[in-house]
Write a protein that binds this DNA or RNA. Structure first.
Lengths: 267, 267
DNA sequence: CAGATTTTGTGGAATATGCCACAGAATTTG
DNA sequence: CAAATTCTGTGGCATATTCCACAAAATCTG
């Protein structure tokens, strides 16, 4: 077994160090600097990318966007491409002027960034800091943040204050995330998060679940709501088997955001 | 002369938008997505690079390392040593079990980090994201975040929702920041921020202003409150002249946090 | 409307990178 | 010490990107 301190580790540490200085590094430059072949550097970068420590680019690597909580940031890295696809597909569902409720979470935060980037004027109500933070242009967006108890792990607020605050509003459209999706509906680990999601769903005309396919058929502690409550689901892959059947049975419109393209299947 | 709204501008905006989502973009992908030639995209990227908005890479571009709001991040950097001194001096005023209200701002955020590092169990009520984010250990701290309209520049929430929420609580101690401090009292640029500070002061038994000496005698748009409202001031230098007189006249205890040591002068 | 200016597309040669497979080197393991 | 495993370098070929120069197209100006 290789101890975690060989030439390789030293090299990879240096790559990360370099990345802290410059936004991007090039494979060729690193190879020269480190006195190894470009292939070796490429392999290092591949490995670091798998660990989510850097992002591979054509000809080099780039560092992660820092500034977020590590745990939260890790989850962000997990499946960037998938989440981007979902985010962009979901943005298409928002109309200018809508009042949009957005749940706290990494998938929804990504969606918020996409929505902000599109510069569609909307009013946002959210319990997530990362979601609120995405809307930097206060001239274009009105962002209302819920009160509640701050949970660092989720980078958002939860609790009875949050829910009773949400009750006071009515939204055109609500976007929520979940830890799993089963025949019975979306499932969640956190009970408090569940309550917030339920409240948002109850206060919105259109109720959309954003979820990546890796969570299909995953059962967690609590069911957020029956499938029939949802009006749409945006995911990066088409569900199969009973899940697909139940979706169409319950009149849930499915939108697939698959790396760039966007398909929609209405039941 | 070209008006600032051609196809070109739209394209470049989209490139930046894309970069907000993904850490890197590739020229080829953008060309396809935008329906233009790779040469055009390259020229756009060159131009954006000259403007310092993106970094050119081999085969594409990468965004500037962001994460926080540039202004906020800069302000954080401005005077770390001074603020640390203030923060540590202020932490000494907090007793275990206190309910603490903390205003949004860079000085108060620093204070929050110091307080969190001390691991004194407290309940925190704040309107600042950076303040809330400092308390990562949810087992030690209970952090309540106010509702309100999110202002990106301040990384916090403001407005009537914020104030009426605060009214519902009573705190042992409140910490606020300010843009200036004059004989008449602390002054602020933002009216909305003023209202929040005033409400916090009204709901707390001990009312403490955290401010660095560079803001002494600085008069801004609005006066937050008369000096007599404050119970304590923590700064990194002893005020002089009329300001010092008025402070003792109004029974305000002054605490000096000067790079490590902490002195207190009671009137 | 015509001329001037800016912007964009095209083609090709030079250069860089990616990827693959295999062999040699280094290290670990028994 | 020898076998096994892991790590690294090399060579070649396919693919991508850069850079340049020039022409076509779009846009602005008077």
């Amino acid at each position: 077994m290789m101890l975690p301190d060989g030439k390789k580790t030293a090299r990879q540490r240096l790559i990360i160090a370099e990345l802290a200085l410059s936004p991007t590094v090039r494979t060729s430059a690193l190879a020269q600097q480190l006195g190894v072949s470009t292939e070796t550097v490429r392999r290092d970068i591949e490995e670091l990318t798998r660990q989510g420590l850097v992002s591979r680019t054509y000809g080099g690597a780039t560092g992660r966007q820092v500034g977020m909580q590590p745990e939260f940031a890790n989850r962000e890295e997990e499946a960037v491409a998938e989440r981007d696809a979902i985010a962009w597909a979901a943005v298409a569902l928002v109309r200018p002027g809508d009042v949009v409720m957005i749940d706290s979470g990494s998938t929804t935060a990504r969606f918020a960034q996409a929505l902000a980037a599109r510069e569609v004027p909307v009013t946002v109500i959210t319990n997530g800091f990362a979601v609120a933070g995405a809307f930097r242009r206060n001239d274009l967006f009105r962002v209302m943040v819920c009160p509640g108890q701050f949970i660092a792990r989720e980078q958002g607020v939860y609790g009875s204050e949050t829910c009773s605050f949400l009750q006071r509003f009515f939204a055109d459209i609500a976007f929520i995330g979940a830890s799993g999706l089963t025949d019975e509906g979306p499932t969640e680990v956190e009970t408090e998060a569940c309550a917030v999601k339920r409240t948002m769903l109850a206060r919105a005309e259109r109720r959309i679940l954003l979820i990546d396919f890796s969570k299909f058929h995953r059962r967690h502690f609590e069911v957020v709501c029956p499938l029939s409550v949802l009006s749409d689901i945006v995911a990066d892959r088409v569900p199969e088997g009973t899940l697909a059947e139940r979706l169409s049975e319950n009149g849930v419109t499915f939108h697939a955001g698959i790396s760039g393209e966007t398909a929609t299947s209405t039941p």
